[in-house]
């Protein structure tokens, strides 16, 4: 049904799907789905750990994310799985002088919880830089256990 606001038909009001209630939660859900799919495709019987590359300036809270992941895998073959983070440092490329490498940080202020990266060129101070790494959130690999009955047995079910 369409809704009318201020005399204007503004179309259907579509609520946010219930399965995505929070940023970190929907990200965790996507990680868990991928992990379970890869494990099942490889006929693993248990997932022991997941290695995730997380960029230094990716805007996720890893502690909260790990907690959501561990909650979501309960009762699956990944129950009790360890979540390991590999921090990927931020790097930039300067479009003016060609510098490629790490970034500088603002002097840490006690009011802030972490030191804030600046993306100006380390060599020439230009603001014409692009971020080349540090924004990723990438599942690198998973460690799995196969049953002693042999790989592939689980596929028969």
């Amino acid at each position: 049904m369409n809704c009318i606001w201020g005399g204007v038909d503004i179309g259907q009001v579509r609520p946010r799907p219930k399965e995505h209630p929070l940023h970190e939660f929907s990200v965790a859900q996507s990680i868990v789905e991928t992990v379970l799919k890869v494990a099942e495709d490889n006929a693993a019987s248990q997932v022991l750990e997941v290695n995730i590359d997380v960029g230094e300036v990716a805007l996720v809270n890893t502690e909260q994310l790990a907690w959501f992941i561990q909650t979501l895998v309960q009762g699956t073959i990944a129950d009790g799985m360890k979540v390991l983070w590999n921090r990927v440092p931020a790097t930039i490329r300067c479009m003016e002088c060609g510098y490629e490498g790490g970034v500088r940080y603002l002097q840490e202020d006690p009011k802030w919880h972490f030191s804030v990266p600046t993306f100006e060129c380390v060599e020439c101070n230009s603001s014409q830089t692009v971020i080349t790494s540090g924004r990723e959130l990438r599942i690198k690999d998973i460690s799995v256990r196969f049953d002693e009955t042999g790989e592939g047995e689980k596929n028969h079910a």
Binding site: V27, S30, I31, T34, V35, V38, A39, N42, A44, L48, A58, E136, L137, R138, I139, K140, D141, I142, S143, V144, R145, F146, D147, E148, E151
Partner: peptide, 17 residues
Amino acid sequence: MHDVSKIPVVEDVLEAN
């Protein structure tokens, strides 16, 4: 005996978006 191994995934979670 149990066999443990690493399976590469290499999938960016934000890539789908």
